[in-house]
């Protein structure tokens, strides 16, 4: 009875899923064709197995360099955000000090404002520091996150008080309680924030676009964007390159699917 009524559900879901995945399949197909096959009318639906397109990605643009840039940028941002946000979030959630709630609201106000409202002065800061066109410059503003602080504060608030109380009675100070008691308890929240930060950082475009002009210093997102601007029309190579650029995030998602979906559902419920 139940399974009989379920088949239309599966059909509709499958149609939606096909619409989600079809562009990627087309991308994969094109990436394995010669330019002649790709621009053939009517289109050829067979791959030419031209793997050399993938090799060409590395020679026609500084792909490896930009890939490594993206990795470095992402790792530094994630590490810094996890440290700074969790420290502040714990203090906002559990320690008492004058001005705490006002300070928290002021920090939160950053979340309400579009990035255009601080982009130019941020650019000027980097210019004054001589950090335009450097990885340090790209990384700097993203070391701090109002969103991450908000998310982790909510997480700390949801943790039970009694473990902390017990540690305090044993004579542990705030730093010890934070480091050895609360952080281990907050691991699911930290992982969720980490994964969301990786995703944001990997795909981030506007800021690195504005502060880099040197292809060797760009992350992949900007590298691909400028490739497009130069009207490179070797579609198979472009498809191969963009597939390689997205692949790490798709793999990370497949591995940590539960964390990402939990993190999103968590932010959606608060």
């Amino acid at each position: 009875m139940r399974s009989q009524r379920l088949w239309p559900v599966h059909v509709l879901l499958a149609v939606g899923a096909a619409a989600m995945v079809a562009p990627f399949l087309w991308q994969l197909l094109t990436s394995l064709q010669t330019l002649g096959e790709a621009t053939h009318v009517p289109p050829t639906f067979l791959p030419g197995w031209r793997w050399s397109n993938y090799a060409e990605v590395f020679t026609s643009m500084p792909f490896l360099r930009q890939f490594l840039n993206t990795v470095v940028i992402t790792v530094v941002r994630v590490a810094a955000q996890l440290l700074f946000c969790s420290m502040a979030a714990y203090a906002f959630a559990r320690l008492r000090f004058p001005g705490r709630d006002v300070l928290f609201l002021v920090m939160l106000s950053v979340l309400m404002v579009p990035s255009q409202a601080y982009l130019l002065p941020q650019y000027q800061i980097l210019m004054h520091l001589g950090l335009l066109n450097t990885l340090t410059g790209i990384v700097l503003p993203g070391l701090f996150s109002a969103f991450g602080t908000f998310m982790l504060r909510q997480f700390f608030l949801s943790l039970p008080l009694d473990v902390e109380e017990a540690a305090r009675l044993d004579g542990a100070g705030p730093v010890r309680i934070f480091w050895s008691v609360m952080l281990p308890l907050a691991k699911p929240g930290l992982i969720s924030l980490g994964v969301l930060t990786v995703l944001w950082s990997w795909n981030d475009l506007l800021w690195p676009l504005v502060v880099t002009s040197d292809a060797g210093r760009m992350p992949l997102s900007v590298g691909l964007a400028t490739l497009q601007g130069e009207h490179v029309t070797d579609y198979p190579v472009l498809m191969a390159g963009s597939l390689l650029a997205s692949l790490p995030m798709i793999v990370m998602f497949l591995v940590s699917q539960r964390r990402i979906t939990e993190g999103i559902a968590f932010t959606g419920s608060k």
Partner: peptide, 10 residues
């Protein structure tokens, strides 16, 4: 999760 720059290209 796909990079907007890559998605736009596709």
């Amino acid at each position: 999760v796909s990079m907007p720059a890559a998605v736009a290209m596709v």
